[in-house]
Amino acid sequence: MTAIPLGHILTLAALLFSLGLVGVLTRRNVLIMLMSVEVMLNAVNLTLVGFSRYNAWTEGHVLAFFIIAVAAAEAAVGLALVLSVFRLKQTTYIDDLRLLKR
């Protein structure tokens, strides 16, 4: 019997997820927005690990492993896009990327 209540684990994960959402919605630097997405993915992993611990299911761990792999792929492609956009516009702020708005 673990001493950590499930509700506390889930609340911590929800708090981290919301913090990541705040970062995506309020920060304007593309690099920091990508980092906030990583925080949100980690919060989901924490939820999976918490539920796995409570039900003794290994499936949750495998799923979290897949999320880590997808996060790695997402970071690689996202950062390549940031580099490519930086070569074109010399900026990492999304306020300057309004080519389709004009």
């Binding site: 499930l6 889930l10 929800a14 919301s18 913090l19 705040v22 919605l25 611990r53 039900n55």
Partner: peptide
């Protein structure tokens, strides 16, 4: 929006955690 999502998540956690019993 983030605050609203956090509130909704907490709402759902209340339901999930009440029935939890660790293996």
């Amino acid at each position: 929006v983030a605050l609203f999502v956090f509130g909704k998540l907490l709402n759902g956690i209340g339901l999930a955690a009440s029935a939890a019993k660790a293996v």
